[in-house]
């Protein structure tokens, strides 16, 4: 997963919505762990449109 640091508002909406609990918001930095199964929910949920799936545009 790729996060745009210009767009991200550090709101945690993606963190609480991730079914795999695979995202951690470290104050302002998002970290994704290996539990991510690329379901894409965080991409849709992000109010700022800040997350992209790798290899997709």
């Amino acid at each position: 997963m790729i996060v745009s640091i210009e767009k991200c508002m550090h709101c945690g909406a993606c963190v609480g919505s991730c079914p795999q609990n695979a995202i951690f918001l470290n104050e302002i930095v998002l970290e994704f762990n290996e539990n991510c199964n690329k379901c894409g929910r965080c991409v849709r949920i992000c109010p700022a449109g800040a997350i992209e799936m790798e290899g997709k545009k």
Partner: peptide, 12 residues
């Protein structure tokens, strides 16, 4: 509601 969102950034 998240289930009603189509594209990223729709809510804004």
């Amino acid at each position: 509601l998240a289930s009603k969102l189509k594209r990223p950034g729709d809510v804004k």
